[in-house]
């Protein structure tokens, strides 16, 4: 083996070793940014939030200015114009912190609007604006349950 050839082999060996080492030193990137999971709440404000480890979900209840200004401990008669939007995400482990759970993809968006009927009576209207569930929430009883649930959430202790 000529001296030049030996030199070349050593050079290739060193380069390959260095590249492998540098590659091994890189961060473990087993995830990527997921902008589609960011909910565009527009002008809505956070009313409260909760999580559920049985269903592996995290929820945020938003409200428009009128809904979000209802005091936490008020026995409230809902007023026309209030809008409540409940966004539910799948809960997943935070890839950057073992010990933390974080919102993943959106699974359900429900909306309740306090409307007036032609008779003048006040009526909450329930609507699912997005769902990845196959068992759709339909039927008067189920809708009624969801309306009651959403409207009975208390405002979070904020600042």
């Amino acid at each position: 083996m000529t001296r030049m050839r030996k030199k070349r082999i050593s050079y290739i060996f060193l380069t390959v070793s260095l590249s492998l080492y540098l590659q091994a030193c890189g961060d473990k990137s087993n995830f990527q940014v997921s902008p589609e999971d960011l909910y565009d709440s527009k002008d809505l404000h956070v009313i409260t939030t909760w999580f559920n480890n049985r269903h592996q979900t995290i929820s945020i209840l938003y409200g428009n200015e009128q809904a979000a200004s209802v005091p936490a401990n008020d026995i409230h008669v809902h007023q026309v114009g209030e809008r409540y939007t409940l966004v539910t995400w799948h809960q997943q482990g935070n890839p950057l912190w073992f010990g933390g759970q974080i919102t993943g993809h959106i699974t359900l968006i429900e909306q309740v609007d306090i409307n007036t009927l032609a008779s003048g009576a006040i009526e909450p209207h329930y609507n699912v604006t997005y769902s990845e569930r196959t068992d759709s929430i339909s039927g008067t009883t189920l809708e009624r349950e969801r309306i009651d649930y959403i409207l009975s959430r208390k405002k979070i202790e904020h600042l």
């Binding site: 909910y39 709440s41 404000h45 956070v46 939030t49 010990g99 919102t103």
Partner: peptide
């Protein structure tokens, strides 16, 4: 309080 929410989390640690 008028900004958008990026994520919500909970920590069992």
């Amino acid at each position: 309080l008028h900004w958008k929410v990026i994520v919500a989390t909970n920590r069992f640690d």
